[in-house]
Nucleic acid binder design. Structure first.
Lengths: 200, 200
DNA sequence: AAAAACATCCCCTTTAATAGGGATAGAGGG
DNA sequence: CCCTCTATCCCTATTAAAGGGGATGTTTTT
């Protein structure tokens, strides 16, 4: 891949970030053309046929669209799929990307990204499956994180406290996490709960 | 306040965001001068004597510097203190600002901000004091969130379990949060712990 | 100098969670 | 049809936490 003009697609809802990133990319001195897009499927419409070398994507945009994203990666194997992270995201989500750049990265390190793509080939990796919690277990987990006791959870779900304890045992086994704090972080990072809902 | 040139200070560690925001502010068509700064105290050094009309600040930058920020607001009462939010923050932290803009806000709504400042006076409000946790309490909280028991925390800090329990009682009283899950979320949203450290 | 906050330690009682051990019934896939 | 997973329920013993009550000495603030 020895070409001097690089095509970069940016999928990011914040115009502030899109503007800033474009500027910094253009300032790296490499000749690049930047396409700003609003959704994943614009890769197949607006950008169809273009050879996109780097796609920079807000991970939120592939949330709940993992299959679509997988297909896209297969249909565009020569693209470097990059996640743009400015808050914490689920690790399994980030694992879908070939590379991660952070909003606080310096222009220099972003410049390096461009440099590398000119000199190397990247191979898309498929993320690992995590052991899924069942629906009921997730219900229990959500209430658990609200700080409810086993008994309160049972009352709320109309099941006995023993069932709740069973579910909790299974949750702990599946996740390997024993403490409530750890489970809270697990639930947040896996988007089972939104942290915003817990801020008063 | 009927002046055409507006001075804007931006305190934001991400260069991507600073770049993007500057661009959008300049594109609003108003004549504004933008100062990029790296810390709160540059208001008293680099910017000393300048009439800053709008300060746009990443709330992280005032975390643990609430007193300094309060004094600053008092010494610069004609400045509009604006928080730039791109992830969740503690609400009490956001209450310290006169105004909040979000990273996903459109250029138009940011332009409105500039427009308003030209036609109105803003009065700085002093935010409520957050009841601060003591150093020791924060140490205990951090270990608590790792899932350690009271006894383990005591062993780690070389204090008796009774002291740990005392600290926990005080933490609960100060924050009003009883459950470990709630405290975890409190600690994350107050940047006492980084959620990234807990992702395996 | 007095008051407030902090850090340390101790006691008691009640309530909840943990860690084992189970059982049963239904749904779904191979 | 068998096996696995899920959801439900139960028991016992041990450990931990919650919620009260204090006390003492040291900083820090007013």
């Amino acid at each position: 891949m020895s070409k001097s003009l690089i095509n970069i697609a940016i999928l990011e809802p914040s115009q502030i970030i899109t503007e800033g990133l474009s500027n910094i990319l253009l300032k790296t001195g490499t000749y690049s053309k930047i396409f700003k897009i609003d959704s994943l499927n614009e890769f197949n419409t607006k950008l169809f046929g273009s050879q996109i070398d780097i796609a920079i994507i807000n991970p939120n945009q592939i949330q709940n669209k993992l299959k679509e994203f997988s297909l896209l990666k297969k249909s565009l194997p020569n693209t470097l799929w990059t996640g743009l992270v400015y808050t914490f995201f689920d690790q399994t989500l980030l694992a879908q990307f070939d590379k991660i750049i952070n909003i606080t990265d310096s222009p220099e390190s972003i410049g390096e990204l461009i440099h590398k793509i000119k000199n190397a080939d990247y191979h898309s990796v498929t993320g690992n499956e995590i052991e899924q919690l069942s629906e009921r277990e997730i219900e229990v987990l959500k209430l658990l994180i609200k700080g409810l006791s086993n008994k309160e959870i049972g009352d709320k779900l109309n099941i006995s406290i023993h069932t709740v304890i069973s579910h909790r045992k299974n949750i702990s086994q599946k996740t390997g996490i024993k403490s409530q704090a750890g489970l809270t972080i697990y639930a947040i990072s896996n988007k089972i709960v939104q942290i915003e809902d817990y801020l008063t």
